[in-house]
Design a protein around this nucleic acid. Structure first.
Length: 514
RNA sequence: CGCGGGGUGGAGCAGCCCGGUAGCUCGCCAGGCUCAUAACCUGGAGGUCGCAGGUUCAAAUCCUGUCCCCGCAACCA
């Protein structure tokens, strides 16, 4: 058994509630965290919010409230929606806020001091071309014909004092760290690693770590330099260790030093997590993380989600469509989008998938087995060699997929089993059989469904439990407990000797209203 | 020469890393079954896997070239 620490990116609560991309990330992380728990690991799962910065400041201004008021209003909506999507982050301390002066700030300030002591911070006068519209300095690459291509305006030349983090000299060991096979910082999936490595090849630049208070007021002050405020990197990335109380009296270092650390993030911020973050940790004397799990982006009906196009999908609406049940959405995101790939969300597709896979194939299968079985007077799963071999091979394949983060293969394997079972029923025609033969056949189907439910558990937890309840398996009530483990015994064919009867069949997934 | 992703039956996607029966969902046609949520099962039509070369006994998969599409990243203008 090992210890796991799973994190997601912390959300920017500029909007009143999470968008689909953020849901995708949380679901991915949640499936991973759940799988770790189910295989017997000790897991800490942390999410949070990144609440500083000019954009927050500005949005709040527009609304005529203080930044603090705005984030205090928005952040609970994030936590609330994630709870309703069944994201199993640790309660109560698995949600870290960067405005939390008790939990977050002390670590950040201490980390800054350590970086300063290590000589990796340097104050410079930065002169650059600043675009008022973008509210940031533009790089040579951004500028087209001397103008900001987004705002079509000529940027101003502005000089300001910035603390810089000297990332430029870290290329060599970073490359080693990211490519070595053992004890490195592994990027998953592989295809996403090349992208980052090619960034190193292009040469790393030092990064701005602070802004003058006058241009960035809403943030953590730089220690011993009251005129400067920390820019996003030192503040936001640090959440991963501030949540563990690093550099304070109540450190929980065992979840870092003696754990496997997995950061789940989107491809847009891969570079910061792959480069700046490990460099910061190195100079602060903290070991580097183990894994960076990168997901792609979501389009809507094949197009970029955009307010202008009007194709933005609100996760809330998706929940509502399925009467608050998060599982169709969780299933969609896990089944349709291989980890790391970009994916598409479409209403047509999710409804299609709901009907064909969840309702017709899975729900209907459970129903037909239970209806036949409840007419029988006994229940007993026959222990046969071929069945038990099939089961153990199936579990082996499934675990391999899950352990290597090929999650869509994991859930597909469960669904393939469902398909096989539907075929089997039609082939065997249990309703034409009698006596012991009939009973045995039906019990074998029920047992197979027990395995299906276990395999679906990381993806659609409440559905998996519901199936198990209807089947009447003895452990059904415990399945959603944090310490529930899919033990070797549970994976074994016919291991549930205490299972003596099935429950009442109920409709698992009702037809959608038009 | 910025970087990355992609082009697979009518639509949407998987398979490519680690070559060897081209798979899934929807749609279409025909049949079966009647345990089940008008669900389930079987068969069929439809693909020269963008194009051109190369490697190989064998290429959707590896290599080279080439054409085309889409992003540069998240609700903010």
């Amino acid at each position: 058994m090992s210890r796991q620490y799973v994190t997601t990116a912390i959300d920017y609560p500029n909007a009143p509630k999470p968008h689909m991309g953020q849901i995708l990330e949380k679901v991915l992380a949640d499936v991973v965290a759940r799988w770790f728990r189910l295989r017997g690991d000790e897991v800490r799962f942390q999410i949070g919010s990144d609440e500083h910065g000019v954009k927050i400041q500005r949005t709040a201004e527009k609304e005529g409230i203080s930044p603090k008021e705005m984030v205090d209003r928005n952040v609970p909506n994030f936590a609330d929606l994630y709870r309703r999507v069944n994201i199993s982050y640790d309660e109560p301390d698995g949600f870290i806020r960067t405005t939390d002066q008790k939990r977050h700030w002390p670590t950040v300030i201490e980390l800054w001091k350590k970086l300063a002591q290590a000589g990796t911070l340097e104050k410079r006068t930065y002169t650059g071309l600043y675009c008022q519209g973008c509210e940031r300095f533009l790089t040579k690459r951004d500028i087209v014909d001397g103008k900001c291509p987004i705002h079509n305006s000529v940027p101003e030349k502005i000089s300001e004092e910035n603390w810089f983090f000297l990332l430029g000299k870290e290329s060599k060991w970073l490359k080693e760290l990211l490519t070595k096979k053992k004890n490195g910082y592994r990027i998953v999936p592989d295809s996403r690693a090349n992208e980052t490595l090619s960034l190193i090849e292009q040469g790393l630049e030092d990064v701005s770590f602070s802004r003058p208070k006058t241009s960035l007021g809403w943030g953590i002050p730089v220690p011993d330099d009251p005129d400067q405020v920390m820019y996003v990197w030192c503040d936001a990335l640090t959440n991963y260790i501030s949540g563990l109380g690093f550099f304070t009296a109540n450190e929980r270092r065992e979840f870092w030093d003696e754990a496997e650390v997995t950061h789940v993030i989107g491809k847009d911020i891969a570079r910061f997590h792959a480069l700046i973050w490990p460099a910061m940790l190195k100079h602060a004397g903290v070991r580097t993380p183990d894994r960076l799990l990168i997901h792609g982006f979501l389009t809507s009906d094949g197009q970029k989600m955009s307010k202008t196009i009007g194709n933005v999908v609100d996760p809330e609406e998706v929940l509502k469509r399925f009467t608050g049940n998060p599982d169709p959405l969780r299933f969609y995101l896990s089944h349709e989008i291989p980890v790391g790939n970009d994916g598409d969300f479409s209403w047509k597709r999710i409804e299609e998938l709901y009907d064909s896979k969840l309702r017709n194939q899975l729900g209907n299968l459970l129903n037909r087995v239970l209806v036949l079985l409840k007419k029988e007077s006994a229940f007993n799963v026959p222990d046969t060699q071929p069945d038990s071999e099939r089961a153990s091979e199936g579990w082996k394949k499934y675990s391999e997929s899950m352990d290597s983060f090929e999650l869509h293969l994991g859930i597909s394997q469960a669904m393939e089993l469902v398909e096989t079972l539907n075929q089997g029923i039609d082939h065997i025609k249990p309703w034409t059989l009698k006596g012991v033969e009939k009973l045995e056949v039906l019990c074998r189907f029920a047992e197979s469904l027990r395995h299906v439910a276990l395999k679906m558990l990381p993806f659609v937890p409440s559905t998996a439990q519901d199936i198990s309840r209807q089947l009447g398996v003895p452990y059904a009530e415990k399945m959603l407990d944090r310490d529930f483990v899919i033990t070797p015994e549970l994976r074994e064919w016919g291991s549930q000797k205490a299972w003596k009867a099935v429950g009442e069949p109920k409709i698992l997934f009702p037809p959608l209203e038009k």
